[in-house]
Design a binder for these strands. Structure first.
Length: 956
DNA sequence: TCGACGCGC
DNA sequence: TGGGATGCGCGTCGAT
């Protein structure tokens, strides 16, 4: 191989495996990754990836720096034997326990920077360099710990950073390197900066403090004074104990008054050399990057210049052929051996468990899945956890398996069910599942996160194969469940749950499934998940959907878990009373209906209603259902009632009550969790192709609101004592987005002027002034506005407004004449869906509409309407998702304890202490109205209306 | 398991 | 030509 990287003085074989052994001296380069990201972000002009607008400036700066370092290193006399990039883990460290204001004023990282954090770690790995990070510690502490260790073994350390906080580590064997300014920092440079040698830097920093990190220090003392004092008295303790000797009155008093604060400051700035090392030093040995992995990464990031440099440095020619178009090439997918469930391991002792955890850490990635004894994550108990560290390398860790209650004539030998105690498993898995340096992968991560959060584990960082599939192929498949994905991509049919647990009446809880079978089933799920991840994840970047995934999907499971676990309080007494009331009135209506029909019949059966109305009473409207049966739906019954018939009205009234009672009152009471006394819905992220969420078990997105009777149910949604419910909803969000997307000047102006949009539409269409406009005129315009969003036809509008079809057709024609931009928008979408079979939202979400390739005209018409609607409905869904992602932090930043409980497509419902109501409304409005920014600058304002009240109906 | 119906946005 | 003729969900019920 002529790879120039091989020309480095040491090859892998010569690198000592143990730094303690005799042999070539260790020379460790530690790159301050976190410091570098921020520096690159602020120093370099903003750069976005051309294909999809993903901000990548800091990643590019980082890659250039790392590449330059690797090249320079080889040429230099002090080339490293070992190398790692060190990252901060979380905002909470032991320093926050010492001093709660430590780094408290730090604003959250800029929005453009956040998606780049994981990418920089990807970059590091692509260059074949280990990433180091540790929960509860800053990068500086890890750097200190490694530096001390290597130094004590007689090795050398080069810290690639310009952070002054690291200068305390400089010494004969430890230097710093500022690659951006290309300067070395040794003891001399430290004296230049602090006026004292490195071993006194901590004392000086303790005295002068640091406003950026919120280290208090002593007021009025800066570097000059501090270093002079330390030089005079020798060290900080001596200075403080002899503070009374200081001549200057003010300075003397300051040091006496603030002695404790200075000592605390010293603890905050002193780096901890005893920080545990996440990886042994010999695992940091310099290795050449895998050329293919690196090339693939640079290609994905579209760093063409750097990619060319890397190829040239290797001695190869720069690629001359133009790469194939992105859509046709497809990313590389690794090939693996077929799935074999007999190879999985059942983990039943801690040594084996620890070995699996170590393998996961070494791999830096682990797929996992939780097995539970129930479907609802809010109540499910853990039965076990499976892990996969590589394709085919998976295990199952049972924790709650039991013998089935031995009853009757069961003489079978009791199975060996020895398992590691649940608490032990949780305690050992927690650090792994929370480790920022280990990526977790799950299928439908929300479920596992909800289950594990009740065991005190906050899983992260995490990728979700279901959401990746959804981003790539929403609309192409009805479900993105694992079994379907496995069949589609791995050509493999996983063991079904039914096979191991049985079905129907005979179904048993997973905890009663024998361990051997449970292991095959559970471990296979993790194995499949990991393989799916390897298959699907590369496509995100390749198909320019990484930003959609990172911003609109990946952050949401965590947010939704919090909402689902919070639940919403309902008043069971009120609902029971309503239910009784409904039942009584239904009984009366039923008697009345039987009397009118002349015989008893089932009011709940459309078929029997048809017999009574159409055959026996001879009524007719002619409307039929899809299967040819005569329809009895509400619009038909309304027509018949309008003709003066009594029975249809009775049926309509009965149906309304039946619906309310059957769907809402009774079931909501049944849905109250005995554990929390609240109702916990489940939100689905991958249900509606447009990106809307869906709610189920129970569905809290279709609680009645339109009728007086229905609103009684809404009134049963209440807040805890001393709290209020707050409802914040977007006003006309879909029409506003249509105005923006379709670029409709009159609509945009009307929204900017805050006009009544339906009245303005009516005025524009019918040429009547808004003032004194008849209500009916406005109603018609409103129906048209909504119809347009849904791709309505003249027939549909005629039905909606009960007007002749010709008249409806004329309205639509007038509408298009007045707002020609809308016709243009519709035609554009129809053309796009017919040529590509998908449309996109302004945020980049892709909605596939395969019916556009359908055989029948009906199918294609359907596709046309979906194509008109999807970019609007989808953009609205994207907007509220963005608001939801930011909401918890925004509330917390204002010191508010309010919680987000529900999302109803254009509405968010919160629960807050009464005293917080106003502040919460302000935050909710701000976050929701600015949600599109900075990704999209809308040409219309978004307006959110919010109210607080004791129940949902009054708040809405 | 399916279709009809009806609740929401 | 002419049938079918507003988007996206979920839950209940009766009929099969």
């Amino acid at each position: 191989m002529t790879d120039t990287l091989d020309a480095a003085p040491q090859t892998l074989d010569e690198i000592p495996r143990e730094p303690t052994q005799d042999g070539p001296k260790v020379r460790l380069y530690l790159v301050d990754g976190s410091g570098f990201i921020f520096r690159a972000f602020h120093a370099l002009p903003p750069l976005t990836r051309k294909s999809d607008g993903l901000p990548v400036g800091a990643v590019q700066g980082f890659c250039n720096m790392l590449w330059k370092l690797l090249v320079d290193m080889k040429a230099s006399d002090d080339a490293p034997t070992h190398l790692a990039v060190v990252f901060d883990h979380s905002e909470q460290t032991f320093r926050n326990k010492l001093y709660d204001k430590y780094k408290a004023h730090r604003p959250p990282p800029p929005e453009d920077l956040r998606p780049q954090f994981p990418l920089v770690r990807d970059a590091t790995r692509a260059f074949g360099v280990p990433c180091l990070e540790l929960p509860g510690y800053e990068a500086d502490d890890l750097i200190a710990a490694y530096a001390c260790k290597v130094r004590d073994f007689g090795g050398e350390v080069v810290i690639v950073s310009s952070d002054k906080d690291l200068m305390q580590l400089v010494g004969p064997q430890v230097t710093m390197l500022d690659t951006m300014k290309n300067v070395r920092i040794g003891p001399e440079q430290v004296v230049e900066k602090f006026g004292v040698p490195p071993d006194k830097v901590v004392d000086v920093q303790a005295l002068c403090g640091d406003s950026v990190d919120n280290v208090p220090g002593a007021p009025g003392i800066g570097i000059k004074t501090a270093s002079a004092l330390i030089l005079e008295y020798g060290d900080l303790d001596t200075l403080l104990s002899r503070a009374h000797e200081i001549k200057q009155d003010k300075r003397r008093q300051t040091l006496i008054d603030f002695a404790d604060q200075v000592r605390l400051s010293r603890e905050l700035v002193r780096l901890d050399c005893d920080t545990p090392l996440p990886s042994p030093i010999d695992e940091l040995a310099v290795e050449d990057p895998d050329p293919q992995v690196l090339a693939d990464f640079l290609e994905l990031m579209e760093f063409r210049t750097l990619a060319r440099r890397v190829v040239e440095a290797r001695g190869g020619a720069a690629p001359t052929a133009t790469p194939a178009p992105a859509e046709t090439k497809g990313p590389q997918v690794p090939q693996h051996a077929a799935i074999d469930v007999t190879t999985y391991q059942c983990v039943r002792d801690v040594e084996t468990l620890d070995a699996w955890i170590a393998r996961a850490r070494a791999a830096g990635i682990v797929a996992f899945d939780t097995e539970t004894d129930a479907l609802s994550s809010a109540s499910a108990e853990l039965c076990g956890v499976s892990l996969a560290v590589a394709p085919g390398e998976a295990c199952y860790i049972p924790v709650g398996h039991q013998d089935e209650a031995a009853g009757g004539l069961d003489f079978e030998e009791p199975a060996d069910l020895a398992q590691i105690p649940c608490e032990e498993v949780i305690a050992r898995l927690k650090p792994l599942l929370e480790d920022p340096a280990v990526l977790k992968v799950a299928q439908n991560a929300k479920y596992d996160m909800a289950v594990l959060s009740r065991y005190g584990i906050e899983v992260g960082p995490i990728d979700d194969t279901m959401l990746i599939s959804f981003v790539l192929e929403a609309g192409l498949h009805k479900s993105h469940g694992m079994d379907e994905l496995a069949k589609r991509w791995l050509d493999h049919e996983p063991i079904s749950f039914k096979t191991v647990a049985g079905a129907g009446k005979a179904q048993k809880s997973f905890k009663h499934v024998p361990l051997s079978e449970a292991t095959c089933y559970a471990a296979e799920d993790s194995d499949v998940t990991l393989r799916l991840y390897e298959h699907l994840r590369p496509r995100l970047a390749h198909e320019h959907l990484l930003t959609v995934y990172e911003t609109l999907e990946r952050p949401l499971p965590k947010v939704l878990v919090e909402m689902e676990l919070a639940g919403v309080k309902v008043d069971p007494e009120r609902l029971r009373q309503l239910s009784n009331d409904f039942a009584v009135r239904m009984g009366e209506l039923e008697i009345e209906a039987h009397r009118l029909a002349g015989r008893p019949f089932n009011l709940g059966s459309p078929k029997q209603i048809g017999e009574v109305l159409y055959q026996e009473m001879g009524l007719a409207t002619g409307k039929t259902t899809g299967t040819g049966a005569t329809s009895t739906d509400a619009s038909v019954l309304e027509d018949l009632a309008a003709q003066g018939h009594e029975l249809p009205r009775t049926l309509l009234d009965w149906r309304q009550l039946s619906k309310l009672k059957g769907t809402y009152t009774d079931n909501l009471v049944a849905a109250i969790s005995p554990r929390t006394g609240r109702v916990h819905t489940s939100f689905s992220l991958a249900a509606a192709t447009t990106g809307r969420l869906a709610s189920s078990d129970p569905n809290l997105q279709n609680i009645p609101v339109r009728t007086e009777e229905g609103r009684k149910i809404r009134k049963a949604f209440i807040a805890e004592p001393g709290h209020v419910l707050i409802s914040a909803d977007y006003s006309q969000i879909e029409l506003r987005l249509l105005a923006h997307i379709g670029d409709i000047p009159q609509l945009k102006q009307a929204f900017k002027d805050g006009l009544d949009i339906h009245a303005m539409t009516a005025s524009e269409m019918f040429g009547v002034p808004v003032e004194g406009m008849p209500a009916e005129t406005r109603r018609r315009a409103k129906a048209i506005n909504f119809g347009i969003v849904y791709g309505i036809s003249a027939f549909g509008l005629a039905n909606q407004l009960s007007i002749p079809r010709e008249e409806a057709g004329a309205y639509i024609k007038t509408y298009f004449d007045r707002f020609p931009g809308i016709r243009t928008y519709m035609d554009r979408m129809i053309q796009q869906v017919r040529s590509q079979a998908f449309v996109t939202t302004i945020f980049g979400r892709k909605v596939h509409i395969p019916a556009a390739r359908g055989k029948s005209q009906a199918e294609r018409s359907f596709a046309d309407r979906a194509a008109i609607n999807a970019p609007i409905q989808g953009a609205a869904a994207d907007v509220i998702r963005r608001a939801m992602v930011r909401m918890p932090d925004a509330l917390r930043a204002e010191g508010l304890t309010a919680r987000m409980l529900l999302q109803v497509h254009d509405e968010l419902v919160f629960e807050a202490p009464e005293a917080e109501a106003e502040a919460v409304i302000a935050v909710a409005k701000r976050v929701m109205e600015s949600a599109p920014e900075p990704a999209v600058a809308l040409s219309v304002p978004l307006v959110v209306e919010a109210r607080a009240a004791a129940n949902w109906d009054d708040a809405h």
